[in-house]
Design a protein around this nucleic acid. Structure first.
Length: 261
DNA sequence: GCGACAG
DNA sequence: ATCTTGTCGC
């Protein structure tokens, strides 16, 4: 995969104002509707892939990317590609983190590492799951959207915490497994109030006990609707809170850390 | 001025 | 994200 919109490649030397206006342009170019080359129903993971994958001749390739950081100012990004739950490709890359973490500007810190890892992949995924928000972002241009639009490639954002927006209804202490609650735009987001910019999705939950698992915050990155984004995430989860592509990329990024020092 | 904010 | 052992609860 190569950038299709070079002008959107993250440039950490820009001023904060320039970064924000670039995000406005990215959001303008983003497609928050389904423009996938596959049916989300054909996405499978190891567990229940049995029946379905047998009848599906050409399962979509889903990739996951995640970052880990070195002691200095370098980020290690790892990408893992799977087809029907089977790993078919992996790649890692290192990049300088030129700026600190700033809520709302994450892609200018980690974006290039992500792009480098995805470019190092020898296969071209049908969709990539990114760790972080997509449309759930002040200017509707989170890391997943930034990367997706730059590559003009379908992406989904999966975050462990809500950056902005408001749940349509208060999120219970213990959301049942499989539940989803719409996240709507509010005054903090550049979208009409009430616009559904993503979902709180409970990928896993304990049946009983005092502790509970928090939901995932799923949003469209590029070329996918919020509903389909949740459907894809649901089908890539395999008994754990995080989607399998993300878990594998996270593990690979950790391993790669020791090799890059 | 205060609060709030992915990784 | 990262520094980190045990520990409480699935």
């Amino acid at each position: 995969m190569q950038p299709v919109r070079p002008e959107f490649v993250p440039d950490a030397s820009l001023t904060r104002e320039e970064m924000e206006s670039l995000q406005d342009e990215i959001a303008e170019a983003a497609v928050f509707e389904d423009d996938l080359g596959f049916d989300p129903e054909d996405v499978t993971v190891g567990r229940d892939s049995g029946q379905r994958s047998l009848v599906e001749a050409d399962p979509p390739v889903i990739a996951g990317v995640d970052q880990a950081f070195l002691e200095d100012d370098r980020a290690v990004s790892a990408a893992v590609a799977l087809r029907a739950g089977e790993v078919i490709d992996e790649a890692t890359a290192v990049a300088e983190t030129e700026i600190p973490y700033i809520p709302g500007l994450l892609s200018f810190r980690e974006g290039n590492a992500v792009l480098a890892a995805l470019e190092a992949l020898s296969v071209s995924p049908d969709l990539t799951v990114v760790d972080g928000s997509g449309r759930i972002h002040f200017r509707q241009a989170g890391l997943a959207t930034h990367v997706g639009v730059t590559l003009d490639h379908p992406t989904v954002g999966v975050a462990k915490n809500l950056l902005c927006g408001t749940p349509r209804e208060p999120i219970p202490d213990r959301l049942p497994e499989g539940a989803r609650i719409p996240i709507e735009a509010n005054g903090d987001v550049t979208a009409p109030d009430g616009t559904v910019i993503g979902y709180a999705y409970q990928s896993r939950q304990y049946e009983r006990g005092s502790t509970s698992i928090n939901p995932l915050y799923v949003s469209s990155g590029h070329r996918i609707s919020a509903e389909a984004a949740v459907a894809v995430v649901e089908r890539t989860c395999d008994g754990y809170k995080l989607p399998e592509p993300t878990r594998l990329a996270d593990a690979l990024a950790d391993e790669a850390k020791s090799e890059f020092r």
